[in-house]
């Protein structure tokens, strides 16, 4: 069964950013959190709680894929999309299409950064805020 990332325990988040460092490291071979597909930030200053901004693994209708003019976002079994870099022209339409702002953009490579639900961030969260949930294949 396919799996998707769920940020079920953000109330426990301590803001260590290890998930972002791990995602950027493993998926982009980069030290910079600006390459991470998951973003953790405060809801307004450190006195507010932490929230995560990451792909919610839409099923059936995937707004980002619909918006892409060159077919670079293929539907992923279980939810979400997989980026086919060679087809991407860097127009950023997917970025504005995502209603939860979970599509980030890599301005150095000129390609979007979208979570592929690989589970590395969940593995590295010290507080079990992130989980990989099993889900049905809608394709």
């Amino acid at each position: 069964m396919p799996k998707v990332l769920r940020a079920v325990g953000m109330n426990k988040c301590i803001g260590c950013f290890t998930c972002m460092l791990a995602c950027a490291g493993v998926n982009h071979r980069n030290h910079s959190i600006s390459k991470s597909a998951i973003r953790v930030r405060t809801s307004g200053g450190l006195q507010g709680k932490f929230v995560s901004v990451v792909c919610l693994a839409c099923k059936d209708e995937r707004a980002c894929a619909e918006a892409c003019p060159s077919g670079a976002l293929e539907k992923r079994p279980g939810g979400g999309v997989i980026l086919k870099k060679e087809r991407c022209i860097g127009c950023r339409k997917c970025e504005s299409a995502c209603i939860v702002s979970a599509v980030h953009f890599d301005e150095d490579e000129n390609k979007p950064i979208i979570c592929k639900h690989c589970g590395v961030c969940a593995k590295f969260c010290p507080h079990e805020c992130l989980e990989m949930e099993e889900t049905t294949n809608d394709l």
Partner: peptide, 25 residues
């Protein structure tokens, strides 16, 4: 701070990172 910073020696670096992460947690 958000600059691009590619990791040079990923295998070796990440191995150390994981070991340290495990020991710390």
């Amino acid at each position: 701070g958000d600059r691009d910073l590619p990791i040079k020696n990923f295998k070796e670096y990440f191995k150390v990172y994981q070991e340290l992460y495990n020991r710390v947690t």
